[in-house]
Design a protein around this nucleic acid. Structure first.
Lengths: 215, 215
DNA sequence: TCAAATATTGAACGACCGTTCAAATCCGGT
DNA sequence: ACCGGATTTGAACGGTCGTTCAATATTTGA
């Protein structure tokens, strides 16, 4: 019997995977609203119209649900950010789309708010797993800023602090955004992008800082 | 017996008030780290080196502890913001100090991180009480932005979205700031202030928008 | 159609939760 | 030294928590 330690066989049917995703959707919303510890397995089961016991067919424990919420959202935004990097050579254009896309994920895709979820409830390896992805995303954002500064398209700024400011402004959306509000995702995204691109605009026009050594 | 509905007499000795504040300090840190529902009365009592039962001598229930955490932090920042408004006539200078002070409260005064605490666990009147204060603070920030735009010191922007971006960048600090990190409160504050003041700088120099009607 | 595979139930478990309160302890003022 | 109010204890309460699992229901594939 190959590969049988705890689980006899990896579950992988489309039916199984679909319900697993549905549970994550429900869980993200609940965790955001009432916190991880404040959400019971019964709460999640009720929203699924199932008993809480059935959840253990899909996840080994409650913490793993939170873990998968984080991983799913981060993998998604990492993929999106990778696409942005591939499409845009100019750092200022890349930053603009990065902001717009992040806001869109945060607002439109319900599970995007997982990006603003608490890490405190994750322990050991699972925490490390999530933090690694979060760091990778932050590194991509910082890289865009760094290149912009180097090319003279952005004024010289503390890249780390600037990245935190951008991430904070966007992730904080989860705290105040309500559907049927005045501003939609792209209105918010465009406004935030304008804000930070102007904040980073170099003193005069065009590129001015030490001309790039390569090309 | 005057004023005896539930509590025979209002407790007000300096000893009592000091310990009550100490409990709030402990609670803010715990709530930030493990969430409201994830923090037990036993946890708070342990940090106080008391039994959980003793906490009920100071607060009628757990939710009231969270409530007072919020109210204390908001009242403090409201007072600070009032001072800023009194000291600065020019909106750009007011905004700079507002940002610096908010960051300072967030970083230095441990209980400042209460400003980034969850509201979801508060119910009914207590939620309303906190939201009223939060709205008052947001209104002061928006007013500074509005006056800046009106005077032509800021470019015309969506004041509400801009205020959210600023608050998000600052409140998000609670998520990443660690003591003994590289940047101190005033480094962060100055950088964030620079960022947003440049983001709001009008197209050319000085005031240009429709000249203010008064003066 | 029916057996196998997949999915869900419902009861039970020990642990810990917030809260209460009479009794015990602490401690400043005299 | 001691009184009396301020403070803390420790046990107990009903309730809910996450988790387990044998039994059962549902769906799938031949």
């Amino acid at each position: 019997m190959p590969g049988s330690r705890k689980e006899s066989r990896a579950k992988s049917g489309p039916r199984f995977l679909a319900r697993r995703d549905q549970i994550l959707d429900i869980a993200v919303a609940a965790f955001r609203q009432k916190g991880f510890a404040g959400t019971s397995m019964q709460d999640i089961g009720r929203a699924l119209q199932r008993t809480k016991g059935s959840l253990y067919y899909y996840f080994p424990d409650k913490e793993e649900i939170l873990h998968r919420c984080h991983v799913r959202a981060l993998d998604h935004i990492l993929a999106v950010a990778g696409g942005v990097r591939r499409r845009h050579a100019r750092p200022d254009q890349a930053l603009r789309e990065l902001i717009v896309q992040h806001v869109r994920i945060m607002v439109h895709e319900f599970h995007g708010t997982a990006l603003a979820l608490e890490l405190g409830a994750l322990s050991g390896p699972r925490l490390q797993d999530v933090v690694r992805r979060r760091d990778r995303y932050e590194a991509m954002l910082r890289e865009v800023l760094r290149r912009g500064v180097q090319q003279g398209r952005f004024r010289p700024v503390d890249v780390k602090l600037t990245a935190f400011a951008i991430l904070g402004a966007i992730n904080w959306i989860a705290q105040w955004y309500r559907e049927h509000g005045e501003a939609g995702a792209d209105t918010i995204g465009a406004h935030f992008a304008d804000l930070f691109l102007r904040a980073l605009a170099p003193p005069r026009s065009g590129r001015r800082a030490r001309p790039s050594t390569l090309h």
